[in-house]
């Protein structure tokens, strides 16, 4: 009898333990709130992986087309994975691009423009954020206007001016605006700096002023070094956008020897078209273009892998969005 009682008690304890375990699993799966449980996470992963696949498929297609040989290119059963890896196309594109030279041109120019914009936009952004400037609101309005004026409005007069000054077919017309805090998306960078400096405490400058530092000293010794996160963001974006820009080089440098990588695609496209007229189209037509595109973005991809966290963390820290 006694034994029976204990057994019954044990059984009851068991069900109790079972139900406790059930609630725990329920908690794990569904979560204390909807957005903390496993089920939600699973849903999130499925959704994100799907979208990421859609996102990446053009790039994967690019790489797979690039390494197909002639047989695989014409074989409709080969979609993603070719029978063998054929690097001839890549080599061909490398030679056609004159890769080392155009890589150096792109790196040099993007680096110079990015450096200039990092400094000149900071000076303007600081003035907008903290200094007393006559008609400041008016100038700020002008800044917003420069943001929405398409480059095509100013390009033709700039070409004429470059013609008059004899700077056509050189990089001068592209680099010069960056000296003054303009150039490609310059307005955006000034705004980023303005927002950053506005979010900084005023005490720093005041103490510098009490110590008798001039505005220039305050800026270059105190405030500018403080703006590291904004500097990284501006430098990276400026570098990437200048690197990618093919419009301005195509207008100013159509005949120059110093072609940047970003022009590669259009140059190769015209070359291929010219060739096709003489010898007929090659099966490698598309794969050469893909190889070119791949070579164009490869340096940026490598840069991006190393600086990826700066792109988002930097933007958060600059206070651009406050």
């Amino acid at each position: 009898m006694n034994r029976l009682m204990t057994r019954m008690r044990n059984a009851r304890l068991d069900t109790h333990a079972l139900s406790a375990a059930l609630t725990r699993t329920k908690l794990v799966i569904l979560g204390r709130e909807l957005d903390k449980g496993l089920l939600f996470k699973l849903f999130l992963y499925v959704l994100l992986i799907d979208v990421a696949f859609i996102y990446l498929s053009p790039i994967m297609k690019m790489v797979s087309t690039m390494i197909k040989n002639a047989g695989d290119l014409s074989d409709p059963s080969v979609i993603w994975i070719p029978h063998e890896i054929y690097l001839g196309t890549l080599q061909n594109a490398w030679e056609k691009l004159d890769y080392i030279k155009s890589f150096l041109v792109s790196t040099g120019v993007s680096g110079i423009v990015a450096l200039l914009q990092t400094v000149s936009c900071a000076v303007a952004g600081y003035a907008f954020a903290r200094l007393q400037v006559p008609f400041k609101n008016f100038w700020f309005f002008c800044l917003l206007v420069t943001f929405i004026v398409p480059p095509q409005v100013t390009i033709l007069p700039n070409i004429i001016a470059a013609n008059q000054m004899g700077t056509m077919q050189t990089w001068v017309p592209i680099i010069l605006p960056a000296v003054f805090g303009h150039g490609l998306k310059g307005a955006l960078f000034v705004i980023i700096y303005r927002q950053f400096f506005m979010s900084q405490p005023k005490e720093l400058e005041e103490s510098a002023k009490i110590d008798g530092a001039s505005v220039f000293k305050t800026f270059f010794k105190v405030m500018f070094p403080l703006a590291k996160s904004a500097m990284v963001v501006v430098f990276l974006f400026s570098f990437v956008w200048t690197w990618n820009d093919s419009y301005l080089p195509s207008m100013y440098l159509y005949n120059s020897d110093l072609q940047p990588l970003s022009r590669g695609l259009s140059i190769i496209a015209t070359e291929l078209a010219a060739q096709a007229e003489i010898t007929g189209p090659t099966p490698y037509q598309d794969s050469i273009k893909m190889a070119t595109a791949f070579l164009m973005i490869l340096p940026l991809l490598i840069l991006y892998v190393f600086t990826q966290r700066w792109f988002v963390e930097g933007i958060e820290r600059t206070g651009l969005v406050e």
Binding site: S120, V123, A124, Y126, A127, F128, L131, V133, W139, C142, V145, T146, V149, T154, N158, P177, V179, F180, G181, H182, G183, V190, V215, F219
Partner: peptide, 13 residues
């Protein structure tokens, strides 16, 4: 401080 930018604004805009 703003004068370089203003100069650029007139010259390039």
């Amino acid at each position: 401080f703003l004068s370089p930018w203003i100069f650029g604004f007139f010259a390039f805009m």
